[in-house]
Simulated assay, not measured.
Amino acid sequence: MGRRASAVVVAGVSLGVAFGIRAVFGGRLDNTGALQQDSGTALYASAVYAAVVFLRPRIPPLVAGAWALGFCWAVEALQLTSVPRTLSEYSIVLRLMLGRAFDWTDVWWYPVGIVPLVAAEVWRASGGRDHAGPQQRHQDAAEGGAVVDERGDRVAGDEA
């Protein structure tokens, strides 16, 4: 699965879980319980990360994470003004996207939604469970007369 398709799945799952928690534990989309608020904040940040990756699939995970976190913090800072509160009165969607009031707790929950996705992408890009670095994989494959890709993974050549 490509990075863009993965981003769509992550966004869908994040939003589905967030709405599911709100439905099960509150029954309303605008529920303000701690579980709903904190999980919603983290899952919102996950969806923002997914949106960054979808829009810029070649961006490195750490850069995507920084952009997503910066966006989330900018939206939170905007809540220090009356703009989100006013807009959220017109639409539940705007209320869920922009919030209504600044909350320091949200500032700390955004990384909770972003860091695991960045870590998973870095792990995936490093070859997952393969603990040999790219140089070692390239050298091992080259010694066997194999053709390797830019990550050093064998794509053709002698079979061992």
Rank of each mutant, 00 (worst) to 15 (best):
G144W: 08
S126D: 04
A74W: 04
V155G: 05
V8H: 09
V155Q: 11
E159W: 10
G27V: 04
A11L: 07
V13M: 03
G20K: 02
S39G: 01
I114A: 04
M97K: 06
V8K: 07
G70D: 08
S6D: 13
Q37Y: 14
A142C: 10
H131I: 14
P111L: 02
S39M: 06
D106N: 05
R151M: 13
S82F: 13
R129T: 08
T41K: 09
A18Y: 00
Q37T: 13
Y44G: 15
R28N: 05
Y110G: 05
T32L: 15
G33Q: 08
A66L: 06
F71T: 15
P61I: 04
V52G: 01
A119S: 06
L98R: 03
W108L: 15
D130E: 15
W123M: 09
A125K: 11
V147H: 04
N31W: 02
R137C: 10
W73H: 12
A68Q: 03
V148K: 05
W108C: 15
T86I: 13
Q139H: 13
S6C: 08
G152F: 00
V17I: 02
G16D: 02
V122E: 03
I92C: 06
V122H: 02
W109T: 05
G65N: 02
Q139A: 10
F25Q: 00
T105L: 13
Y44K: 07
G2R: 11
A156G: 06
P57G: 03
S46L: 09
W108H: 09
P116W: 06
V75H: 02
P116Y: 13
R56W: 08
F71M: 15
R28T: 11
R154Y: 09
S39W: 12
L87P: 00
L62P: 08
G12L: 02
L29Y: 06
A119H: 06
